[in-house]
Design a protein around this nucleic acid. Structure first.
Lengths: 191, 191
DNA sequence: CAACGATAGCTAAGTGCCTTAGCTTTAAGG
DNA sequence: CCTTAAAGCTAAGGCACTTAGCTATCGTTG
């Protein structure tokens, strides 16, 4: 029995690939072990268990998403930045149907990389909203609004929740355009 | 062994109650059977299996949500209707943490009541948007935007995704206010 | 180069959940 | 009263997760 030479990173990375292929709910330790060419209990040498794997996968996916959001916004501002970031967000969700839902897990305080990834993702959104002059409580509200809109849209889209034939790309761009208008005259009370 | 006298409706209703108490993922046939005072396989006399139960629960919850949305909007229009409906939406999600995620399941074409419930829910939103003068493709886009925003918000809220101390109620109202503004000058190309 | 120790990976075994098969008994109706 | 549909049961198998304990590999060290 030659050793395969796994470590936590290879296991989590393969879990991410598998999740994208078969869907997050179908990501099972059994399937992952078979994919990696080891017996199921061997995975426990690298990951504490199924829940811990899900958490590490969340950290990985959140970090990836944060990086894509950041790099989409770099060098742009205002409407331009918002559109680029929104497109990057949806692209990631569509390209990674298994990883994306994993990003919804709340960062584990015991995993610094996970926490940092979450902060980076929210920070990227915050930065774009700064370009609209939004700060303080207004920025918090606007960040929540933008996250809600983007997350809600891609979730409903992925779930097949949009039944009508109307072009989904176009609906998304309309949504982003409407958020752009909202941010220009954010209805905050100012505090 | 006295008969308990179950039928599909009592089973599904109890499943809904249980889901709200313990969370949708923890709604298990074993827990439900024990709650109803029967052995687990007895449930199969009333429901085809775990997946069919989830579908019936989705139909129930979707119908309830549709009813609440409709009754919130009745007798109102414009901003007033939008606010009332948005509040009803979030109230339902918060009061029914197990039922609400069940509503995200795509209606089963083989279950007319489920399909009808889904149409009723979307129809309620459509009706409110008609009050903003939105019709045709614009109404489709706006409906998707509103669903995305509301669903995204309550999902993130329920998942504990809003870490900062800023009042969540207020953020929600800001989101709804911004959607209201957007709908007044919907950025559609006109079709 | 040989012995050692850490550990990757294995088999075995137990739990919980879903599902099917087949039996028993209730209770409704002729 | 007797029949019968079906409500509910026990038994048993499958799949997923987890733990315990063993084996063998490989890097390190004497």
């Amino acid at each position: 029995m030659p050793r395969v030479g796994l470590n936590q990173q290879t296991v989590v990375r393969e879990a991410a690939r598998l999740a994208d292929e078969v869907g997050l709910p179908q990501l099972t330790l059994a399937a992952l072990a078979s994919r990696l060419g080891v017996a199921l209990p061997s995975l426990y040498k690298h990951v504490r268990g199924a829940d811990a794997l899900a958490q590490k996968l969340a950290a990985l996916a959140t970090a990836e998403l944060a990086t894509e959001l950041t790099s989409a916004a770099v060098g742009r501002s205002g409407t331009d930045a918002l559109r680029a970031m929104a497109d990057a967000y949806r692209d990631y969700a569509l390209r990674h149907p298994g990883r994306y839902p994993a990003t919804q897990r709340v960062p584990d305080p015991a995993d610094p990389e996970h926490v940092e990834a979450g902060e980076r993702a929210v920070g990227a959104i915050f930065a774009v909203l700064r370009g609209y002059g939004l700060t303080g409580d207004d920025a918090v509200d606007a960040t929540r609004a933008l996250r809600s809109a983007l997350h809600g849209f891609v979730t409903l889209e992925a779930a097949g929740g949009f039944g009508l034939p109307r072009d989904v790309d176009r609906s998304y761009h309309q949504l982003v355009a409407s958020m752009d208008i909202s941010f220009r005259s954010w209805p905050g009370t100012g505090g």
